[in-house]
C-alpha cells in the first residue's frame, strides 16, 4: 500500500493547483480517507463517486475495453476528475472550478 508521506505529497501538489476546490481520497468501499472539504460533502463525494466508479468499471469490462483508468465529469460548476487505483483499493477525486 502507498505510504502516507507519498500520498500526502501528491495531495499537497494537487491542492496547490489553481482552480482546485477540493481533493478527496476514498477507499473502494466508499469510506473517505483524506479530504480538505467539509465532512458532509466528503461523505457524499466518497459514497456517490465510488458507486459511479463501480458502474463505470462494469461498463468497461462488459465492453471488453481493458481497464478503467480515468473519469472526467464536466459540470456547469467546473470539473470532477476521478482516478481509480484498484491495486491500492483507492479512488482519487479532484473537484475543480471553472476557469
Amino acid at each position: 500500500m502507498i505510504s502516507q508521506e507519498k500520498l500526502q505529497a501528491i495531495l499537497q501538489r494537487l491542492r496547490a493547483q489553481e482552480g482546485v476546490r477540493g481533493v478527496v481520497v476514498t477507499t473502494m468501499e466508499g469510506l473517505p480517507l483524506s479530504s480538505d472539504i467539509d465532512p458532509d460533502t466528503t461523505e457524499s463525494v466518497a459514497a456517490i463517486i465510488t458507486s459511479l466508479v463501480g458502474k463505470a468499471m462494469d461498463a468497461v469490462r462488459e465492453l471488453k475495453e481493458g481497464n478503467l483508468s480515468f473519469l472526467t465529469l464536466d459540470t456547469s460548476k467546473g470539473q470532477i476528475n476521478i482516478a481509480p487505483e484498484p491495486k491500492e483499493g483507492l479512488i482519487l477525486v479532484v473537484l475543480k472550478n471553472n476557469e
Partner: peptide, 10 residues
C-alpha cells in the same frame, strides 16, 4: 463487498 459509504449515506 459493498460500497459502505453509500450504504451509510442512504
Amino acid at each position: 463487498e459493498v460500497n459502505i459509504g453509500m450504504i451509510r449515506l442512504v
